[in-house]
Amino acid sequence: MVVTGEAKTGTHALVDYGRAKVNLTLRVVGRRVDGYHDLESVVAFADCADRLTLSTGSALSLETTGPTANACGEVTHNLVLKAARLLAERVADLEVGAFALEKMLPVAAGIGGGSADAAAALRLLARLNDLSFDDARLAEVALLTGADVPVCLASRACDMTGVGEGLLPLSLPKLPAVLVNPNVPVATKDVFTALGLRNGELLVGATDVLEAPVWPGEGASIAEWIAALSEVGNDLEAPAKRIQPVIADVLRALGEAQGAQLARMSGSGATCFALFAVAADAQAAARTIAAAHPGWWVHAGELS
């Protein structure tokens, strides 16, 4: 969890960050009879984020700024407000305030930007109202807000299962990585529709993934993790590439980068990532890709 102190002494403003979520693996076990998809995914978090400020003493509101704010859609539908309203239904006399979201992450990008923002809002409201971060109402609201919000609420590496409610913490080393988004939005609903599973249907070949795999334990090296992650892909990658073929171009650019150990799509796309053994190789790859594709969003950093 990434939490800062107050923005300025005496302003009654609290600040938190919605870190980008990266699905290092993503297996679709099947589609339940209620239409939701059961997943198993190793999730890590990047060192790039949206910034959310909560100013107290005001009615609930949200203002968005930043380079990707215009892509967020109507403020009234923002997950920050949805999470706040759901929590207010469960916590009597919940103190709220004015949220200000500085949107830095790509939107509809497969890195959980909106979910991370909602999770940051819940953490801020918990701090403001002296709620424990393990309060059951926070967990309930997180899942009701969106499938990725529970893992973003913890904002730490996890093996995520079910529809997002199963979270097993993982001891992940800091992984040098490059994230690339071609600035093309991909709707999660469209990707799952393209996957084509009927209600109650298991994904073909899914019988061997009904139990979560055993991932490397405490103290495992970057090489051990990359080897383990290489054994499991992202089942949404193929349908996403059919919707947005540019994803294949992004994966090719990442895979051909010097020092890249693994290149894959995150979530439902279009953001893709490459893992590196050496941070300097990741930085060099990011510079090369950004120069070759100036219209793409490129970030080099660490996943943890």
Score class of each variant (00 low, 15 high):
E6V: 00
G10I: 01
T11Q: 14
A13S: 11
L14S: 07
R27D: 09
R32K: 07
V33A: 10
G35W: 03
D38Y: 06
E40P: 02
D47K: 05
D50E: 12
L54S: 00
T56Q: 15
G57P: 14
V80C: 00
L86I: 02
L86F: 06
A88T: 04
A88S: 13
E89K: 04
L94R: 05
G97T: 03
G97I: 00
A100N: 11
K103W: 10
K103P: 15
A109M: 09
L122N: 01
L125P: 12
R127I: 02
R127K: 06
N129W: 09
D130G: 08
D135C: 08
L138K: 02
E140I: 01
V141P: 09
C152I: 01
A154H: 13
S155F: 03
G162Q: 06
G162A: 02
V163R: 15
G164W: 11
G166W: 07
L172I: 01
A177D: 15
P182W: 04
V184Y: 12
V184K: 15
K189M: 02
L195E: 11
R198T: 04
L202Q: 15
L203Y: 08
V209P: 14
P213D: 11
G219V: 06
A220N: 08
A223E: 11
S230D: 15
E237P: 12
A238F: 09
V246A: 13
A257R: 10
Q258A: 10
R264K: 05
F273P: 14
F273K: 12
Q283I: 03
A285R: 14
I289S: 14
